[in-house]
Amino acid sequence: MKPVRIAAAFALLALLSACANQIEATTSDAAGVPGFWWGLWHGFVFPWAWIGSLFSPNIAVYAVPNSGGWYDFGFFLGITVLGGGSFFGSRSRKRE
């Protein structure tokens, strides 16, 4: 019975992945495309942008096109710094 469940899970995953859509022009070297600093800002405002994107199709949480790796790095730093990252989550509190 277990191989049937595994096969069904893979079939469901393949079906869901077939619905994925990718925008062709994701990176650009043109002047004015978002880079590291915009990525950092977009990472900081991600929670609010995500909530806004649920109600308005004009709000996006990620800039496309962007400069590529540096934008992604800034976005990652913005999200982890705002969320406290793993440093704050791993600290244990002293119980008194």
Rank of each mutant, 00 (worst) to 15 (best):
S17L: 08
G68Q: 09
W41E: 12
L15F: 08
A49C: 09
A31Y: 02
Y71P: 02
T26S: 13
H42E: 14
I79T: 02
S17V: 01
G69P: 00
P34A: 15
I51T: 05
A30T: 01
I59N: 04
L15R: 00
G74I: 09
R93I: 10
F75P: 01
T26P: 00
D72A: 12
P57W: 05
K94P: 02
A14I: 04
H42L: 14
W37Q: 14
G68Y: 07
R93G: 04
P34G: 15
Y62W: 14
C19T: 08
V45L: 12
L40E: 11
G69C: 02
V81F: 10
W70I: 07
G89Q: 08
V81W: 09
G35H: 06
G85W: 05
I51D: 02
G68P: 02
A63I: 10
A31Q: 10
I23S: 09
F73R: 02
G39W: 12
L16D: 04
G68T: 04
F88H: 05
S90L: 04
G69Y: 02
G52P: 01
G35W: 06
W70E: 15
W38K: 13
F36C: 09
G35F: 10
F36S: 09
S28M: 07
R93D: 13
L82V: 05
A18C: 08
G43F: 10
T80H: 03
I59V: 15
G39D: 14
Y62M: 07
E24G: 04
F88E: 13
A14M: 10
N58F: 11
R91I: 10
T80Q: 07
L13M: 06
A18S: 11
G74L: 08
A20N: 01
G32Y: 10
G83I: 05
W41M: 14
G83F: 08
C19R: 04
T80R: 04
W41S: 12
S92D: 06
T80V: 03
E24R: 10
T26K: 12
E24W: 07
S56A: 10
Y71F: 14
L40F: 15
F36H: 06
L77Y: 01
T27V: 15
A63R: 13
G39M: 15
A25Y: 05
A60G: 01
L13K: 00
F88Q: 09
L16C: 11
V45Y: 08
Q22F: 14
I23V: 13
R93C: 07
W50C: 09
D29K: 13
L16I: 07
G43N: 09
F55P: 00
F75D: 03
F75S: 02
I23L: 13
E24P: 03
L54F: 08
A49F: 06
I79W: 03
A18W: 02
S86M: 12
Y62N: 05
V33N: 05
L77V: 03
S53I: 01
A14F: 11
A25R: 03
K94G: 06
G85F: 06
W70T: 11
Q22P: 00
V64T: 15
S53W: 01
P57A: 13
G43I: 11
P57F: 08
G83N: 07
Q22Y: 12
F87C: 01
V64L: 14
S92K: 06
A30C: 02
G35E: 11
G35M: 06
T26A: 14
L13A: 12
G85I: 06
A31V: 06
W37F: 14
Y71A: 11
F46I: 03
